[in-house]
């Protein structure tokens, strides 16, 4: 057992438990907080994978923005669904079965993958510079980058339009 392995196992355990809590706890606010924990675990795993940039981005986007948005949405809609109501629908058993099937299938595939047991490459750490240039390079990824930005603008405008309070004339 090396140090990275210990860190990985600890983080993985925390992440998985937090994820399980997210889908099972009846109080949605708590689910949101557990979600933050799970996402933070993912960020730690990103650091373990030696990509600090994505880890920080993960924190900035998922925890600071998405998770907080979700919690606010929970707070805004809390009045209609009391925490004592069933939070799991009647088909939860079938859902669990389906999820297990998916997981089993994925694990089967993973177990048969030829490279599954290999370690990380030695020459890691592609610089932030290279990533930045690749994102705006015509021969690189400028198209997905621009498409993502257009998508974000569209989503911004769209969500404002959808959530806007209807005016009196509506």
């Amino acid at each position: 057992m090396t140090v990275p392995q210990i860190i990985f196992l600890a983080t993985a355990a925390v992440t998985l438990i937090a994820a399980l809590m997210v889908v099972t706890v009846p109080r949605l606010v708590h689910a949101g907080l557990w979600l933050i924990l799970a996402l933070g675990g993912i960020a730690v795993l990103f650091i373990l994978l030696e990509n600090g940039f994505l880890a920080v981005v993960q924190v900035a986007i998922y925890i600071d923005a998405i998770a907080i948005l979700i919690i606010i949405a929970v707070m805004l809609t809390r009045a209609v669904m009391s925490d004592t109501d069933p939070q799991i629908n009647r088909m939860w058993l079938a859902s669990a079965l389906a999820s297990l099937i998916i997981m089993a299938g994925l694990l089967v595939i993973v177990s048969q993958a030829p490279d599954a047991s290999r370690g990380p490459l030695v020459d890691a750490e592609v610089g932030l510079d290279a990533l930045g240039r690749a994102l705006v390079d015509v021969d690189g990824f400028i198209l997905p980058f621009e498409v993502a930005s257009v998508l974000l603008v569209a989503a911004l405008v769209g969500s404002i339009m959808v959530a806007m309070t209807p005016t009196r004339g509506d």
């Binding site: 992440t15 998985l16 994820a19 399980l20 997210v22 889908v23 949605l28 799970a38 669904m81 109501d85 069933p86 939070q87 799991i88 629908n89 088909m91 939860w92 079938a94 859902s95 669990a96 389906a98 999820s99 297990l100 998916i102 997981m103 994925l106």
Partner: peptide, 14 residues
């Protein structure tokens, strides 16, 4: 993690 998330999608009411 994917399976857990899928369970949440399939089973949660909210």
């Amino acid at each position: 993690l994917f399976a857990v998330g899928l369970f949440g999608v399939l089973a949660r009411r909210n």
